[in-house]
Nucleic acid binder design. Structure first.
Length: 315
DNA sequence: TCCTACAGACGGCGGTGATC
DNA sequence: GATCACCGCCGTCTGTAGGA
């Protein structure tokens, strides 16, 4: 039975929604109770009241296992938005008092994980009351989480082409070809694009942004890239090249140390480097929280300067 | 007379421990 | 996980006193 909005507002409490949120993620009343500092009966009672208020079960209990019902899935989306708005409100209230406090939920595509510590260091030194939570994923999963409002900002190199996302480029991210020192390709005077990709091309896994960028580039350059192997991270790719398994195209920042040491070499090949920028990406529909805005301002100025001093490409 | 502040009574709500 | 009995806290209601 569905209630009118007023009836719902009279019966529903924030406490019920808070408990529901934890049960949804833990899929256990006992574990939710432990996290909330309650006993299992207290959680059970809150869920019972919530389900009575909404007139529908949020969970099915089958064989000692909780399963989320379609109504539970719907409620979770609403609750996530509500709690996100409340967090924004809290940050705005702190801002009215002249303080910047709250959580920055940052997600980073795996290729960007080496630059982010240099962005965060200055930011957290300046705003010690901000709590940063960092998640590392590939581009597809990071984008999905962003659109589900599970993160505030994603740092990525190749931004999906959609109006749902706003982007703020803040630092060059050139993709360069790399081979191990002493590779037979280096003995010739000039390397063609096709020769490079025929020398055991190693690529990133499906869903990676740098792989997508490179596949686009190959199409426009009419180059046949037949990968010898796909690996799940730039770090794995780099070590595969160092081990002599093949050649790869990697972000310059990821191989800077090896190029300086001379263990990797970036040969001159027509069309390279691929010009890309690291971007801070957030949902277009989302009004940036004060903490988000402060981080966006930071990476556009001090953050970019910190990266330039460490990762800039010598032309 | 009206408004505000305070105190006491009461009921509902949310919690626990025990038990199924 | 669900239910029950019990307990403590808190909000509401009501009555009273004091000040404008």
């Amino acid at each position: 039975m569905a209630y009118t909005l007023n009836q719902l507002l009279n019966r529903l409490t924030f406490r019920q929604l808070q408990v529901f949120k934890v049960v949804f993620h833990k899929l256990s009343y006992s574990k939710a109770a432990e996290q909330l500092g309650l006993t299992q009966p207290a959680v059970s009672a809150q869920m019972k009241q919530l389900e009575a208020a909404l007139g529908q079960p949020m969970f099915d209990y089958v064989g000692k296992q909780l399963y989320v019902t379609p109504a539970g899935e719907q409620l979770e989306r609403v609750v996530r938005g509500m709690f996100s708005d409340l967090e924004s409100l809290q940050m705005n209230l702190y801002q009215l008092e002249g303080q910047l406090r709250g959580e920055l939920r940052l997600c980073v595509v795996s290729s960007a994980e080496i630059i982010v510590p240099y962005l965060l260091k200055g930011f957290l030194s300046r705003y010690p009351t901000v709590n940063a939570r960092l998640t590392v994923l590939n581009r597809t999963n990071a984008t999905e989480r962003l659109l589900q409002n599970r993160d505030d900002i994603v740092i990525m190199g190749v931004v999906p082409d959609t109006r749902l996302l706003s982007r703020q480029p803040f630092f060059d991210n050139p993709l360069i070809p790399v081979v191990s020192a002493g590779h037979p390709l280096l003995s010739g005077s000039e390397i063609t694009q096709q020769e490079f990709f025929d020398a055991g091309y190693l690529q990133r896994e499906q869903g990676s942004g740098s792989r997508a960028a490179l596949e686009d580039w190959c199409r426009t350059q009419r180059v046949q890239a037949k990968p010898a192997m796909a690996l799940g991270s730039n770090e794995a790719l780099k070590h595969a090249v160092l081990a002599g398994l093949g050649v790869a195209v990697l972000p310059h920042a990821n191989v800077l140390a090896e190029l300086q040491l001379g263990t990797l070499v970036s040969p001159k090949i027509k069309g390279f480097p691929l010009r890309r920028s690291w971007c801070a990406v957030y949902p277009s529909a989302k009004q940036p929280t004060p903490v988000m805005q402060a981080f966006l301002d930071h990476i556009g100025s001090e953050g970019a300067a910190a990266l330039a001093s460490r990762f800039s490409v010598a032309e």
